[in-house]
Amino acid sequence: MNIDTKKIKSMLDRKGRMKIFLSVCASCGACADSCFYYRNSGDPESTPSYKALNSLGIMFRKWKKLDYDDLTAMKKLIWGKCVMCRRCYCPLGIDISSAISWARTICRANGVYEDFSEGPSGIKDK
């Protein structure tokens, strides 16, 4: 499966603000407690900052080299560990859920998306 890195780039370019924001993330962890998903699971991969940095953050850093598998690997993070409730709060003003949401949208534009016929979280259970 091919993905369109040019399209990814142009979509990333439309959210230049997000790039700056993600680059200023201090990894302070303050957002973790605002995410019910993290609070309930305690899973460090489900803190909002982790999810944003490891999806949209990666896209910004290595968009040229991204392939279909990279996007598929993000599914577990951005769909499996986030319900897009938009309650996450960052004292620096980073709009974390919008970043995750944009990562989802970019995935979708490349044919990688949640599929609720595969289960309640929209991703295949492994």
């Binding site: 989802r104 949640e114 609720f116």
Partner: peptide, 14 residues
């Protein structure tokens, strides 16, 4: 819509 109608298999990306 990737919300409810995606979950109920009526209006998501698929």
């Amino acid at each position: 819509c990737a919300g409810c109608t995606a979950v109920c298999l009526a209006g998501g990306q698929r």
